[in-house]
Design a binder for these strands. Structure first.
Lengths: 136, 136
DNA sequence: CAGGATCCTCTGCGATACTG
DNA sequence: CAGTATCGCAGAGGATCCTG
């Protein structure tokens, strides 16, 4: 168990750029950070694992269609906002595991509700859309 | 009450472009459609009104920071997917009202949970972020 | 009032190539 | 393995002007 308490990593270009204005309390800010599809899908995956930890490559496999770049950025953002914890093992080959923080876990029920809603209602949306397009 | 049952409107350029591939059942599709911040904020506003109807300009005033263009696009998308109903009154001056459909309403509890979570936890996120940035 | 059409900018994001 | 850096383009989205 050679885990580093703090991952030895300087700020990324993306992070530096995204750091930007701190922002006030409003939803707008938070929604901008959490509202995109990748964030939601990554968190759903992390919540779905029994052991609660996943490696980078496992996440990439599970989150269908995500690029390596977007997964990295999404995870960095989640870590930065205290929703995900990054466990760095300085082994060879390198190993990194991700898990939800307590704060992150508190968000999970909502995400699962959302996911359930989609499963239950996407057909209705699909139908509505087809009909709407027909009468246009 | 000179309401048209169906708004007499041909497909917009934006809509035609966005029509694209119908898409399979997956979350990915739905999240792409519903996952952006404007969609969520517009729906929250529509849900917040007692009378359940809002005019275009009222919505624009309430959803802070949204441009006229994005509000139009967002509303069109919501209408197309059966989440919002558009009431068109051919008066002078023109009047249009929007309200959530039953399908749209079924999504509201989740959005409000999300909104509540943000209000309760944004400070924690903020703190986590500041600390994370300090030790970088 | 409630948008449509156009222009133009900025960035999201994939593809690719390189490292510890 | 788990990233980082760079390039490049399509698309998001604001600003502006115009109409029924």
């Amino acid at each position: 168990m050679s885990e580093q308490s703090i991952s030895p990593r300087p700020l990324t270009k993306d992070e530096t750029v995204r750091a930007g204005a701190a922002g006030s309390c409003n939803q707008h800010e938070v929604l901008t950070r959490l509202g995109d599809k990748w964030t939601i899908m990554v968190m759903l995956q992390l919540a779905a694992v029994p052991g609660q930890r996943m490696r980078f490559s496992a996440l990439k496999r599970k989150v269908a269609g995500i690029s390596q770049r977007m997964l990295t950025i999404t995870l960095r953002m989640l870590e930065r906002n205290g929703l995900v914890i990054r466990h760095y093992f300085a082994e060879v080959p390198l190993r990194v595991e991700y898990e939800l923080s307590p704060l992150g876990h508190s968000l999970v029920p909502m995400l699962e509700n959302f996911s359930a809603w989609i499963a239950a209602n996407w057909q209705d949306m699909e139908d509505a859309r087809l009909q709407h397009d027909r009468e246009a």
